[in-house]
């Protein structure tokens, strides 16, 4: 099962590498990983989407907690949360298909951010499954290239007070 794990790490040299090294060293999967500053400049938030049996995910969370540079680890899976991903997708168009493509873009509430005489670049934001859906629909037109940001996620407001670094065992 896929899990979305939010990790607060010290915003300094090497913290990201520690997390990445731990994942590869322990043989854990990473579907996506994204990192950026938070409201507190010394803290970065990493959002990691990983997959595994419950036993593996339990180890992932414990191993993340064990790193000295992690301040807080929250498995958002099963919790009320907001998840978003951004994708930039460049698609080939022919006479007549350009309007179709911009139409699809509108349906998914995306934006056209670039265009030339062969390709059109769309920007789409949403939960990861929406991004998958856009890609599916656009694939027949021919996707020239694509970049996905990976998921970022936050818990919904009312639960924020329950955060703890470690789950008491």
């Amino acid at each position: 099962m896929k899990h979305t794990i939010s990790v607060h790490v010290e915003n300094h040299y090497g913290a990201f590498n520690r997390v990445a090294t731990m994942f590869s060293g322990k043989g854990f999967n990473i579907h996506s990983i994204s990192i950026g500053e938070t409201e507190v400049p010394e803290v970065s938030r990493m959002t990691i989407v990983t997959e595994g049996e419950d036993k593996i995910i339990e180890q992932v969370v414990k191993q993340l907690n064990r790193l000295i540079d992690t301040i807080k680890v929250i498995d958002l899976t099963g919790q009320s949360r907001v998840e978003r991903e951004l994708a930039l997708i460049t698609v080939f168009y022919q006479k007549g298909t350009r309007a179709e493509i911009t139409n699809i873009c509108n349906i998914f509430r995306g934006n056209v951010v670039d265009i030339n005489n062969k390709t059109i670049t769309l920007e789409v934001t949403g939960p990861p499954d929406k991004i998958d859906a856009v890609i599916n629909v656009l694939a027949p037109y021919g996707i020239k290239e694509m970049a996905r940001s990976g998921t970022v996620a936050l818990k919904r407001g009312e639960q924020l007070k329950q955060d703890k670094k470690e789950t008491v065992i």
Partner: peptide, 11 residues
């Protein structure tokens, strides 16, 4: 003392 040791090899 190390939580990662628990349930790692043997539940």
């Amino acid at each position: 003392i190390d939580p990662t040791c628990i349930d790692k090899n043997i539940v």
